[in-house]
Amino acid sequence: MTTVNWQSLADKSLAGLVLSRDEALAVLTAPDDQLLDQLAAAYRVRRATWGNRVRLHFLLNAQSGLCPEDCNYCSQSKISAAEIEKYPMLAQEKILEAADRAAALKAGTLCMVISGRTPGDTVFGKVLDAVKAVRAKHDLKICACLGLLNEEQVLRLKEAGVETVNHNLNTSANYTPEIVSTHTFEDRVNTVEAVKAAGMKTCSGGILGMGESDDDVIDLALSLRDLDVKSVPVNFLIPVPGTSFEGRNELDPRRCLRILVLYRLLLPTQEIRISGGREVHLRSMQVMGLYPANSIFVGDYLTTQGQTARDDLRMIEDAGFVLETPDGEPLEGDPFAGVPESYPRAPLPLVEV
């Protein structure tokens, strides 16, 4: 196999040029002995926009389960038999408690998620009220993930104080019918376009390890680039028992890192966040993901457990990275100040990898 000059790909990325299909495939199929060189090239691109800063997000599952969609990967889907907590929209008091925890853990953004296809009027009104209450109490940015939305709903979120709306494309247009039948790829694109039309920050990414091809991995990244998405969460499938994809174990740490390298080279200025599956699939190599990516979730995920916040902060500090404030500046002072030793955890599914 011909050795690729990874730094030349970094030069191309920094110049705003799109990698060719062959170059993108080369990133995903490179031998392991080139991984460090790939990470070095990706870090050069990351550093040009984000320096050595790491942005923290805190995820709140404000409504769990009860979803009419049939997404094969999801433990909250109507076809899932996963043993998870199921509950309607949390009371505002509980949402404020989560916001308190997010602020204590040095997160700059509270990501408020509800399960379901699209919010009904009552739930949507509760979301708006909760956003206003959080913004009144904390200097936290708010990202809302509420399912399919139209431009009017997005504008109301903006007026309430939401800065970003998340709606993941999840996979390529070609592979979408393999993971869900209750909505289309175009449905998801339309929601992202509605967010853009409202002048709000777009957050959209995907889930890797669902059986997609290398071309699907590339096509998802190119779709996100075409949509000019600003924040890109990269999830690695956790094959939760009880879901349709519980037997899919296609990932290893090196594959995950090569995907992150590719996404940095194709999305040079975007915030790239290592999201669900970080601890399960990167394992002892988690910190290496911060060389292409510049953001992580701190704490737990929607229905699965992450590592402790103190472990995350120690990992960031040990590698010479610094936390970022909500304003995008390096955090000054002790990053551990006020961070609790422990807090209530989400259930950790028993997943064999």
Rank of each mutant, 00 (worst) to 15 (best):
V217Q: 13
V217M: 15
D219L: 12
L220S: 11
A221P: 05
A221S: 14
L222A: 09
L222I: 09
L222Q: 13
R225T: 08
R225K: 15
D226W: 06
D226T: 13
D226P: 00
L227Y: 11
L227C: 10
V229P: 09
K230Y: 10
S231R: 00
N235L: 08
N235T: 07
L237A: 08
I238T: 09
I238A: 12
I238D: 02
P239S: 06
V240C: 06
V240P: 02
P241L: 06
G242R: 03
G242Y: 10
T243M: 11
T243Q: 06
F245W: 06
F245L: 15
F245G: 07
F245C: 14
E246F: 11
G247E: 12
R248L: 15
R248E: 14
R248G: 07
R248P: 00
L251R: 02
D252M: 08
D252F: 14
D252G: 13
P253G: 10
P253I: 13
R255C: 05
R255Y: 14
R255K: 15
C256G: 05
C256W: 05
L257Q: 11
L257K: 04
R258M: 07
R258N: 09
L262K: 01
Y263E: 00
R264Q: 07
L267F: 05
L267G: 05
T269H: 11
T269G: 03
E271I: 07
E271K: 03
E271R: 11
I272G: 06
I272T: 06
R273P: 00
G276L: 03
G277F: 02
E279L: 02
E279P: 02
V280A: 10
H281D: 06
R283K: 11
R283V: 00
M285E: 13
Q286P: 00
G289T: 12
G289A: 10
L290K: 01
L290G: 03
P292L: 07
P292W: 03
P292K: 02
A293T: 03
N294S: 14
